[in-house]
Design a protein around this nucleic acid. Sequence first.
DNA 1: TATTTGAATAATGAATTCATAATACCGAAA
DNA 2: TTTCGGTATTATGAATTCATTATTCAAATA
Lengths: 219, 219
Amino acid sequence: MEKIQPRSLYLEVADRVRDLIEQGSLLPGEKIAEKELCESFGVSRTPLREALKVLTSEGLVENLPNRGSRVVRLTRQGVKNTYDVMGALEGLSGELACQHLSDEDVEQIRALHQRMLNHYRNGELAPYFEVNQQIHERILAASNNDVLIEMYNNLSQRVKRIRYSVEMGQANWAKAVADHEAMLEAIDARDGKRLGDILRAHLGHKLEVATVSGIIDEE
Amino acid sequence: MEKIQPRSLYLEVADRVRDLIEQGSLLPGEKIAEKELCESFGVSRTPLREALKVLTSEGLVENLPNRGSRVVRLTRQGVKNTYDVMGALEGLSGELACQHLSDEDVEQIRALHQRMLNHYRNGELAPYFEVNQQIHERILAASNNDVLIEMYNNLSQRVKRIRYSVEMGQANWAKAVADHEAMLEAIDARDGKRLGDILRAHLGHKLEVATVSGIIDEE
DNA sequence: TATTTGAATAATGAATTCATAATACCGAAA
DNA sequence: TTTCGGTATTATGAATTCATTATTCAAATA
């Protein structure tokens, strides 16, 4: 039997605003007009303001007293900082995952890995990224550490709105794939230490940062 | 000329509630009566409710729709999960710190280290912990990564309300001190990789977890 | 013409009010 | 006595209202 989950309005609103930010309907640095959003959502200002406060503590929005809320600007340094932390968390996810991964889990990851390799060989970048991310998510989930998952998802959300210029140097791409091969070996051996080291050094993200497009502020 | 910093009321309230939780005036699992708190703070329900939503997204409070807010319960597993993530973050802080630590920074850390050793030799546990924490904070600050600092502080806040039974096995204590000696060597050599590894394995916290007292829920 | 001052307007912050859901209470029936 | 049902009470959720602070824009001054 499935539980009925009543959800608060402010959470719903927060989700919607998060989506707007992620999809670029609300741009970094843009002022968030409460009245406007309220009308488009069909709610009063109270739940919207509550949602904005949540998003503020999530790092997506900033709150200037008496001057309303804005979408936080991304700086190159800020994005790098975020990816550095995500890397550390991925490293931990690898270590922990090896303690929990069942044989079936590993088989599923291996299947994903093969699909990823196919996309790589065919030069299909978008599908490659898609499957790539699924692999990392599997490992994260297998960490069985909900605090870790929560932190990672928060950071992930902050940089989701970045759209990468879809160009990855052939060498970098090959390196990333090689990393994944090594990851699979470590997983097979349930060698958490090694998987963690690989993931920490994987830098899949950092590579991308270098090629970030528009919405990041310079200076 | 110093800038005037207007602070929102809800942030003030959030700080106060955080303190109440940290000091144990609000116990894990305890229902948070809005009316009561409002009166004691002298504010209306609106800023309090906003503050509670912030604390919810910080992981200190949970929100049951239509049934109000409670202080989240700490479970052994939850605390372990938190410390695991904190360990990973500390590891990263060590790696990054080595890229930024000035000679003066190192000297200050060395001084703290010596004070810590004195407390160790005198068997003064509380002062030892105090200085110990200052060292870790210095390293964290030297990471120059505000995202990392923010995440760490959040997690730290979640477990701050735990009061440890002040007993640490002599062997564990000696091990912790030895770790710190190694840390200082790595810092001197600006060997980020090594410092990171030491910090990740330091487990200073995990040792404590085993001896946690009252407010953690079993099961 | 550029800059500053002040009034009008709009937006935000916080308290209050209203609606709704949960809890407590009490009596009746098994 | 215990359990069920129904009402009264209370607390929460959300909208609304009120107060205060920013912003805009026009007029006045340099």
